[in-house]
């Protein structure tokens, strides 16, 4: 057992943090990191959606929600810092694993294999990168206010009129369309990602896992439909300026 003892912390002299850092760059470990950050990003998406849906309750409620968010710096910055850390770590882990994967098969098969694996599960990198590109545009429009139509007047109480910005933006078909396409890509990413993250964290169950496979499809595309309902409602006139 000389070999097996070699990785015990008492023999390598690693601290817990040190050995966890080593694990985080290993093949299974980088997937665990991706799963944990993915879980965090997924929860953020749900919370973000819940906030967005207040747009259906009208201008006042939505602006009230926007002000409440801005008026709560610990929450706002807590989430922002989590995103600022979570996104790059998720992406770094993805780069690490895909580089290892590429090196693991230097010679491709001459006959393109037929598989039952879904297109979504095989294009996680692609959907991830496209969602990331959209995320930058989304921030520029809705957070930094440097692109897209922006309201010129403030609300009577001096706050930014977030509701009008949302409506003005989504009245432009190209902005709505980009938004909806990005949601479909995100849905594809989540439809495999949700199932996958539980598998990476070792949370398997005889009844749970088959349920989870269907649930991640439903949750992924369900979230997509809920997000897309907002630009659609603006364009169809259900959400009025």
């Amino acid at each position: 057992m000389a070999e097996a003892l070699e990785l015990k912390r008492e023999s390598t002299g690693d601290t817990l943090i040190g050995s966890l850092m080593k694990f985080a760059t290993s093949s299974v470990g980088s997937k665990v990191v991706m799963a944990l950050t993915g879980l965090g990003l997924w929860l953020f998406v749900i919370a973000h959606l819940a906030g967005n849906l207040t747009a259906f309750a009208g201008k006042e409620t939505f602006n009230h929600y926007a002000e409440a968010l801005k008026g709560n710096p610990p929450l706002l910055w807590g989430v922002r810092i989590a995103l600022i850390l979570g996104f790059p770590i998720h992406i770094l882990a993805a780069i690490n694993t895909s580089m290892r994967n590429r090196a693991a098969r230097p010679v491709a098969y001459a006959f393109e294999p037929r598989t039952e694996a879904t297109a979504a599960s095989k294009s996680m990198i692609l959907t991830g990168l496209l969602v990331l590109a959209y995320f930058a545009f989304h921030l520029a429009h809705f957070t930094w206010h440097i692109t897209g139509p922006q309201p010129t007047t403030l609300l009577p109480n001096g706050s930014y009129d977030a509701y009008s910005m949302l409506v003005m933006g989504f009245q432009q078909p190209i902005i709505s369309l980009t938004y909806i396409v990005a949601q479909v890509l995100l849905a594809a990413h989540l439809s495999h990602g949700i199932y996958s993250l539980f598998q990476h964290l070792g949370l398997w169950g005889a009844k749970w896992t088959p349920f989870l496979k269907n649930a991640s499809l439903a949750i992924g595309y369900g979230l997509c439909a809920a997000f897309a309902s907002i630009p659609l409602a603006v364009m169809l006139g259900f959400i009025k300026p």
Partner: peptide
Amino acid sequence: DRVKNMAMQMDAEGFGNCSNLS
């Protein structure tokens, strides 16, 4: 110990990662 050491050797051999495609 078994899973730790086998995983370490698996990485050293240059196998790729699991993407859960089954």
